[in-house]
Design a protein around this nucleic acid. Sequence first.
RNA 1: GCGAGAGUGGCGGAAUUGGCAGACGCGCUGGACUUAGGAUCCAGUGGUAUGACCGUAGGGGUUCGACUCCCCUCUCUCGCACCA
Length: 858
Amino acid sequence: MLYNPLELEKKWQRIWERDELFKVEEDPSKDKYYLLEMFPYPSGKLHMGHVRNYTIGDVVGRYKRMCGKNVLHPIGWDAFGLPAENAAIDHGTHPEKWTYQNIETMKSQLKRMGFSYDWDRELATCDPRYYRWEQLIFLKMFKKGLAYKKRTYVNWCESCQTVLAKEQVENGCCWRHTDQEVSLKEMDSWFFKITDYAEEILDACDQLSGWPERVLSMQRNWIGKSHGAIIRFPLDHSDGEVEVYTTRQDTLYGATFMCFAPEHPMVKEIIKGQPQEAEILEFIERTLRLDSYVRTADFTEKEGMFTGRYCLNPVTHEKIPIYVANFVLFDYGTGAIMAVPTHDQRDFEFAKKYGLSLRVVIQPPGETLKEETMTEAYEGEGTLVHSGSFDGKGNLEALDDIADYLESEGLGHKTVNYRLRDWNISRQRYWGTPIPIIYCETCGMVPVPEEDLPVVLPLDLKIGPNGASPLPLEPSFYEINCPKCGGNARRETDTMDTFVESSWYFYRYTCPDYKDGPINPKSVDYWMPVDQYIGGIEHAILHLLYSRFYTRVLRDLGYLNLDEPFRNLLTQGMVCKETQECPEHGYLHPDEVKDQRCVHCQAEIITGQTLKMSKSKKNVVDPEDLISRYGADTVRVFCLFASPPERDLEWSDQGVEGSYRFLNRIWRLITDHLEDVSRVPSFDGKGDLSALLRDLHRKTHQTIQKVTHDIEERFHFNTAISAVMELVNEVNRFLGSGRDMGDLACSLVREAVEAVILLLSPVAPHITEECWRMLGHGRSLMETPWPGFQADALEVDKKLIVIQVNGKVRSRIEVPASFDQKEIETEALKDERLQDFIGEKTIKRVIVVKDKLVNVVV
RNA sequence: GCGAGAGUGGCGGAAUUGGCAGACGCGCUGGACUUAGGAUCCAGUGGUAUGACCGUAGGGGUUCGACUCCCCUCUCUCGCACCA
């Protein structure tokens, strides 16, 4: 009988579905285990990244189930988003149709992989039954001031035709369109007040012991907490004042000028009527037109313009000039800085360029700096000078003293600053959750009454050829009467960032049909937090930060009693593959290469770098092709065997073949010896075993121990699989040794074979299920307990002792297991090979490591 | 520049409370079976001057003993970066 994965996998998938083996209910009598993989965007079909992510999860899920846990393992669809609209523009398909077609395709692919999802909990975020709750949460946030609207400079992506959050800008470009530079645009946008939770989210990082340090450090970095002071500088020409934020209040006496960010609203006020007003406005406009990457790049020179106005240094009372400068960031601190050219390199360069004055206020130890001779700023520690009553103090201790002084004089105060900005959630897009707000001509901004939810996204609209959202052009959507006064009103036509949907979907999985609110408290109490979350590192900031924020919002709205959603996080590595290039035709798809030549022009191909699989590099492998060639089990085995999950996986067609061969070996092992093995029960632990049988018995239990440890403690499936391979090799050796196969021998082989099946079943569920039934078992492996190992089976009667001379291995001896240290030493010193090495030399010392080695120092 | 992680055969990777470096797999070599072999099985496979030698990016150190701990250097990956 040949191994026919396609037929056999289909059969078991049908049976699992028929018997509803993946369904799960709340059961207070059982330990719950919430296993979650990041839900996919329904982009068309599954790619290898999905397959790897979901395979890792499925192994954990099946393993935990066999260990007796009540496992929640849901899946759904992150179904709003721009690609659906792009498809609509390109192919004229409506986003809804496109999305649901993709869901159908990908769902059947997931099923073909044999993943153990509870499909009854499936959700799609573009379904009004989902997003209506998101709108309700929005309204509650709005009422608490956690959602607010403001006019400000925002990041605009021309390709997306929409605004982006700060987190969605990478190197000055859009996170989706990595070659589309983001520009600044002044407009009204909705924000979530994530900054209110900055401190809490940052603090809680220390408690997330189940998260990779890498992710935590990225989050801490992103929040960017710093300690400093706000200092107020009075304007010279009016009663106004300018606030600056600094972490270096110790250098305040050396502040000889001030710089505004070009966006700062005060600039326009103070230059009004100045002779250089027009010129400055032109400079501001020119600077803001630059995309943020160019503006902040290393090669961009620091530039500024004098505003014609002065302010007063609050401690020296000197008049200092006010500049507008391109390098000052509007959205950090107060958007204005005090410049201390002697102790800040950027300020130094700026001062030199524009001939501004310098004053040293920190002298380094054993050196005296002079303004006229300085060639760069001194940013180190030292003693304060020219700093009034603070002269002579160390600059670090003066940090606090000066801040206290400012506070007592009413000139400023200590403060903590964060780099994190509020989350801009407005999107000028169609395929998203409508923001439930109405603008009334008389009442102003009015929230949609809760009983009117959901604000349904109309599905009968066509996206224009320029890609812009049809919502602002559709009177039947935006024309509405004010719910308060009944007068003329207009709906908000922005939709929400799709990251809002993914910030709470894992709560909805616990109660997908709950009708009385977004979250059923009973279900959430039972299932949350997520015990294991698995996904790509690319969400280290975006999705994971937003989810941590949203959890706190939901908590403070009274929906849950929880601070952190994800107890343990596993960030799996990327799936990579060699690129192949033709000098003529560029990157080539594997199908376009034959015998190392380009199929179009016969040119020899160049093998390029190993990079993340991507359509643009054409170094992709279609999971569908693999499944129909080898079956899902082979794909699963390879994904896990090739590397540990957190590392990148390098694709290897030959490695896949190897995994397929391994499953074939198991298949033959069982089918070839089925008669022998099925006529006896598995070894019951009774009876005297010969040394050979005891070795096999021991290997079986060692393997159970190792596989359990590798999965349970560290998710190292690659070593778990190799341990099973070793056991298979051992059984084959045993069977090939031509021994007489008595009942006892058969029962031990059966024990070993059953261990192979059980241990491998989370990884390759189909073939193992088939083998399990062949051995006469009636129930699914999913309902079979995970095997335990017997400690007495691990016992050995002889131990191998390594003998070293001066730390180098020179010999090995076997001693009875009962030997103690002294006996081992005596026995080792008798060893002939050792004696040869020692020769005439005198033994200085002998180190004995119990049960392991003897090191003789001569 | 700051922060995090990594560097082991031809390749993917094993080995971490310091104790036989290279498990397992791929590839390769030889053999068996065969009309055939790109199936299967068996044997071998870090280097080498074949030594009792060398070898875990390089250099130092601690130790009886270091892939593992400490110091320095190099390389690579990722994140942040004119953050005041």
